[in-house]
Design a protein around this nucleic acid. Structure first.
Length: 410
DNA sequence: TCTGGGGTCCTAGGACCC
DNA sequence: TCTGGGGTCCTAGGACCC
């Protein structure tokens, strides 16, 4: 394992850069990519916007306070997924071992490619040149003996960086690297480690392992290894990746709501979104989750219910969600609603026995066909047909280009 | 017009079985 | 007449990632 060569490639300000490429008027200007709702946040800021202090996750109004000239662009997911897919295909020219980590990041295992291409550095330059030439985009690349260090390396120089951590440089690098720079140490863990006086990876490595274990359980061992820059996890290409475990959608409402009929309309829409995606993936689920965030933002209620059988039809999901909602005593107006399906397995392809069930299945199938062909919500349940419920399909950075390949069969 | 949306993994407690 | 354990499944909540 010690002679692995792993590359991590991270597209710079991906959504914003794609927009600047397709619209020259945006080039050189502060651009923030946002969602369609007025309660949206900045999903990506161009480097010009970052210079003003605009950051991912900021509320729209907050970003405008940092940078009054900020140009806000509503994200176009289709454009990003299209570009992203083509970039990942390009990476396949250098190794079949490409792990898509998010819509704009991937790991490549290059150990088997060096004989053909000379060196990992050489591959990095070639890939960068092609991405720039074909898409007008830059990326930051890290090369190291494992994924943890490759990701750390790619973060070191942005934009358009290339950073290599060689095996004999690992110890020195870890000595000066702040713990929060590691992927896996978030805000909370950073705070807890700092309370122990640990600020750098070097200090983390030297900290007594038994205390880490006592305080963090099995995570303690992981932390100890991370501090040394050790990570044995393999690069897993999509076709070998774990099947997806949950399918869900949630939405922050344009205004806080109270009325049950309004709540139901959103829940029906969410159930339809979840059901449609589950059916597209060919899975059904046995557990249904309802998520509610109250107007105060801090109170989040999650309630789940496991059914007697697996379901994938939107109306069945909706009914289950209804039952869960009935068991909750609502205490505040609602800001966000979410529906999720888990306990997934391959859908049973057999048609149900009863006439009524069969009819519903066929109707569902017909509805899916139209939606697959013409886009989401061209055909849907009658109660959804208001302007508010046109349902913009959302893509997240957790998106995977090929979707689900295989699903656990239990 | 305060703070999105998609996931994964881990923990901890309770029910239930043998 | 004291409360053993191992296993699985379920639920709720939180940390973390992009």
């Amino acid at each position: 394992m010690s002679d692995r060569v792993i590359m991590h490639c991270d597209m710079n300000a991906f959504f914003a850069s794609v927009e600047q490429q397709s619209n020259p008027e945006l080039r050189g200007k502060p651009v923030g990519i946002i969602g369609a709702s007025h309660r949206t946040i900045i999903t990506t800021a161009s480097y010009e916007a970052r210079a003003y202090g605009v950051r991912t996750g900021m509320a729209k109004w907050e970003a405008l306070q940092c940078c009054p000239d900020l140009i806000l662009v509503v994200g176009n997911n289709r454009k990003y997924t299209h570009t992203s897919t083509r970039i990942f295909e390009m990476m396949q020219d250098y190794t079949p071992l490409v792990e898509v980590f998010s819509i704009d990041e991937a790991f490549l295992d290059l150990a088997g490619s060096l004989a053909l291409f000379g060196s990992a550095e050489n591959i990095a330059y070639r890939l960068k040149a092609r991405i720039r030439h074909q898409f007008g985009l830059t990326c930051s690349i890290g090369i190291a003996p494992n994924k943890l260090l490759a990701k750390l390396a790619s973060e070191m120089k942005k934009p358009d960086g290339l950073t290599i951590i060689r095996p004999d440089e690992v110890v020195e690098t870890m000595e000066r690297t702040p713990i929060e720079d590691l992927c896996g140490i978030g805000r909370r863990m950073n705070r807890q480690l700092r309370q122990l006086g640990i600020e750098t990876c070097g200090q983390l490595e030297r900290y007594p392992l038994d205390i880490l274990r006592r305080k963090f359980g099995i995570i303690g061992d992981k932390l100890h290894r991370m501090g040394q820059g050790i990570d044995e996890s393999p690069v897993i290409p999509d076709e070998r990746s774990e099947p997806v475990k949950t399918v869900g959608h949630s939405m922050t409402l344009s205004h806080d709501i109270n009325r049950r009929d309004e709540i139901n309309r959103y829940l029906l829409q969410l159930s339809e979104m979840v059901g449609r995606r589950a059916r597209r993936y060919g899975v059904s689920g046995k557990t249904v989750h309802l998520t509610i965030r109250y107007a105060d933002f801090d109170t989040n209620i999650g309630k789940q219910s496991t059914l007697l059988s697996h379901i994938d039809r939107s109306d069945e999901i909706y009914q289950a969600v209804q039952r869960i909602l009935n068991s909750i005593n609502l205490e505040q107006p609602i800001r966000l609603l979410g529906v999720r399906l888990s306990n997934l397995r391959h859908r049973d392809s057999q048609l149900p026995l009863f006439q009524e069930e069969r009819r519903k299945d066929l109707a569902t199938h017909a509805m899916d066909e139209v939606n697959n062909q013409y886009g989401d919500f061209k055909v849907t349940f009658g109660s959804l047909l208001t302007d508010e419920h046109k349902g913009s399909s959302v893509i997240s950075p957790a998106w995977r280009p090929q979707g689900i390949r295989n699903v656990d069969v239990k």
